[in-house]
Amino acid sequence: MTEYLIYFNQQWVGDHDEEWFRGRGPLARAVVDEMKAAGVLRYAGGLEEELDLAFSADATSGELTFTDGPFAETKEYLGGLTIVEAPDDQAARVWAGKIAEACGWPQEVRPFKPGSPGSTTG
Rank of each mutant, 00 (worst) to 15 (best):
residue 14 G to T: 04
residue 29 R to C: 00
residue 59 A to Y: 06
residue 47 L to E: 10
residue 53 L to R: 11
residue 56 S to L: 02
residue 32 V to R: 14
residue 29 R to E: 02
residue 36 K to W: 06
residue 48 E to C: 10
residue 58 D to C: 15
residue 30 A to H: 03
residue 58 D to N: 13
residue 54 A to Y: 15
residue 54 A to H: 12
residue 34 E to D: 14
residue 18 E to Y: 13
residue 29 R to A: 01
residue 43 Y to F: 09
residue 52 D to T: 15
residue 43 Y to T: 02
residue 48 E to Y: 11
residue 49 E to A: 11
residue 27 L to W: 07
residue 51 L to R: 12
residue 14 G to P: 03
residue 51 L to C: 09
residue 15 D to N: 03
residue 23 G to L: 03
residue 51 L to E: 05
residue 22 R to I: 00
residue 36 K to Q: 05
residue 20 W to K: 07
residue 24 R to V: 05
residue 43 Y to K: 01
residue 18 E to G: 14
residue 16 H to A: 11
residue 50 E to K: 09
residue 23 G to H: 10
residue 35 M to D: 10
residue 33 D to P: 01
residue 23 G to C: 08
residue 19 E to K: 04
residue 51 L to G: 01
residue 55 F to D: 04
residue 46 G to M: 10
residue 35 M to F: 13
residue 21 F to C: 01
residue 26 P to H: 07
residue 17 D to G: 15
residue 21 F to H: 14
residue 52 D to C: 12
residue 55 F to P: 05
residue 46 G to A: 13
residue 44 A to S: 07
residue 24 R to E: 04
residue 59 A to W: 11
residue 37 A to G: 06
residue 20 W to C: 00
residue 39 G to M: 01
residue 57 A to D: 09
residue 55 F to N: 01
residue 49 E to R: 12
residue 52 D to L: 08
residue 55 F to S: 12
residue 37 A to C: 12
residue 58 D to Q: 01
residue 16 H to E: 11
residue 54 A to F: 07
residue 23 G to Q: 02
residue 16 H to I: 06
residue 17 D to P: 14
residue 41 L to E: 13
residue 31 V to M: 02
residue 59 A to R: 06
residue 44 A to E: 04
residue 54 A to I: 06
residue 46 G to H: 08
residue 47 L to K: 11
residue 38 A to W: 11
residue 57 A to N: 09
residue 48 E to K: 11
residue 43 Y to S: 05
residue 29 R to L: 00
residue 53 L to K: 09
residue 30 A to D: 14
residue 17 D to Q: 05
residue 20 W to E: 00
